[in-house]
Write a protein that binds this DNA or RNA. Structure first.
Length: 222
DNA sequence: GCGACAG
DNA sequence: ATCTTGTCGC
């Protein structure tokens, strides 16, 4: 269970404290990563008062989902750009806790360190659970970048204060690119490498894509 | 004050 | 994120 602040000011203070625990470095043996976790959250209207989350573990070699878990919870924290984790991490962790198997690394919808204070939801998740993680966002939160070549597999660096905080990746030809940034315990380069390996015929990497598909269909599964 | 702004 | 149908393009 994560610490839940009561307002934006407290949330920002907490992020500034947690950011010091983020570790961006090479993952030991990325070629041997087999089990990749994926999570996503959905709301079924009614002023989006309750959130639903699905956490899955995907086998990169067989291409199959080997386990899935579902959770739902009333959300209290509002959606504020930069403070997304305080709204969605609680349900995500509820779903994560129901899994019996372990994943080598996790992919989360949203930013990793490509965040105003370097602690996007993927980093927050990684630090709290002490697990390697990657942030996979469908749009930009912070940073600047040049145009990304239109062909699948190409990418350009995402800059912030003269530093590369992530990559803007073309996971499908002629389709809007993804904003990939390391969450915890992985490097920028490897994060992009792993995301591309998980993209077969869709814009989103399989772990995140499948979790989104399941949570959108209210795929209950205990 | 104005514009930007993950899901 | 969610509300929504058909439609243009690879």
């Amino acid at each position: 269970m994560i610490k839940l602040p009561h307002n934006a000011k407290e949330a920002i203070k907490l992020q500034n404290e947690l950011r010091s625990f983020v570790r961006i470095r090479d993952y030991p043996n990325i070629a041997q990563i087999r089990f990749i976790g994926g999570v996503d959250v959905a709301y079924f209207s009614r002023k989006m008062t309750s959130a639903y989350a699905v956490a899955i573990i995907w086998d990169r070699f067989s291409g199959e989902v080997i386990e899935r878990a579902y959770a739902e919870r009333n959300v209290t924290f509002p959606y504020i750009p930069g403070l997304l984790s305080f709204r969605e991490l609680p349900v995500i962790i509820d779903a994560y806790d129901k899994l019996s198997l372990k994943a080598d690394i996790w992919m989360i919808d949203g930013a990793g360190v490509a965040h105003p204070r370097g602690l996007g939801i993927a980093s927050h998740f990684g630090v709290v659970l002490d697990l390697p993680s990657i942030g996979v966002a469908k749009s930009r939160l912070v940073g600047n970048h040049l145009h990304v070549p239109r062909n699948k597999g190409s990418w350009v660096p995402l800059w912030q204060d003269k530093k590369v905080i992530g990559h803007v990746v073309r996971t499908r030809s002629k389709v809007r690119p993804l904003y990939v940034s390391p969450g915890h315990k992985i490097s920028v380069r490897q994060a992009t490498e792993l995301v591309l390996v998980c993209c077969t015929r869709y814009r989103l990497p399989e772990p995140t894509r499948l979790a989104h598909h399941l949570v959108t269909r209210r795929a209950h599964s205990l």
